[in-house]
Computed example of a mutant assay.
Amino acid sequence: MTGNPFRGAGYLLRGLQMLPEPSLRMFVLIPLLINIVLFSGAIWLLIDQFENWVGYWLAKLPDWLSFLEWLLWPLFAVLVLIVVYYTFTLVANFIAAPFNGLLAEKVEMKLRGQVNSASGWQAALKMIPQALARELAKLRYYLPRFLFILLLTFIPLVNLASPLLWFLFGSWMMAIQYCDYPMDNNRVSFGNMKSLLKSHRLTALGFGGLVQLGMLVPVLNLILMPAAVVGATVYWVEEYAGEADQLMDLR
């Protein structure tokens, strides 16, 4: 694999540094509020229902396996956390998609002075159906892989590798999720976007990996969505935008 994971992680840090800039504040606000509301809801739901959910799955064990309850409790607890984490991340990104696209556009305008799409709030409203369709494309890509790794988690011995698989999968999906906003703005197709990230996979994994870890840090996770959008746009501009004319797919 080619690329540099440290360079990829650096793009998120630069995104965090750019959040307070006055020209971006208005466009950061809506994704920020969406993230705060949904992740606050996820935390409340976990606190309120965590024991019930884990208890429900443990109750499904046959009596002759009850002696394994002490061993399986941590596994079911981790699975509950994973499912809630990924579900709320998907919902947050789906709702915020049009606003994240607009934020990515404003960052690219600031960095390059141009973007290969119509601009402004009216244009953003018109792009809502396209943004949601793009989120559905990500969901179709994401779900089979999520379910496959979830299945591996229940297979003895194989499940020893599941923590690493979950981390790599989450890192890759975070890279796809956030790098897609600036690339979609520049009319790069979903397939071409994946090919671009795969061409320097370690850089993409470094970026997505730090996003994923940041999502686990209380308070920091509330501002990670807009920071990741800004960082991904810097990533696009510095790594790929020079080739935009060749990569553009006029759908």
Score class of each variant (00 low, 15 high):
R140I: 12
P218C: 03
V234Q: 08
L136E: 07
F148I: 12
F148W: 15
P218T: 00
P129W: 11
Q130N: 10
A175K: 09
V229N: 05
L216A: 12
L147N: 01
L213D: 04
L216T: 06
V188I: 13
F167Q: 01
V234I: 15
S199Q: 09
R134V: 10
L143F: 11
L210Y: 11
L150Y: 02
T203K: 05
M225Y: 15
F207R: 04
A228Y: 09
M215I: 15
G214R: 09
L125V: 14
I149D: 00
F207Y: 15
R187V: 10
L222D: 04
L202W: 13
D184R: 11
R201T: 10
N192V: 07
F207I: 04
P163E: 02
F207A: 01
S189V: 02
F148V: 13
M193W: 07
G206D: 09
S171K: 01
A175I: 03
S189R: 01
T203D: 08
L164Y: 02
P226F: 09
A131W: 12
W236A: 00
L197P: 02
M215S: 15
L143Y: 06
S171W: 00
A228D: 01
D180V: 06
L150K: 03
L125Q: 11
Q177F: 10
L139T: 11
R201A: 13
P182Q: 05
A137F: 10
V158T: 01
F148K: 11
L202F: 15
W172H: 04
A228M: 06
A227H: 07
L222M: 15
L136Y: 14
L205S: 08
T153V: 00
V211I: 14
V230G: 07
F169Q: 02
L196T: 03
L151N: 08
W236D: 00
L168G: 04
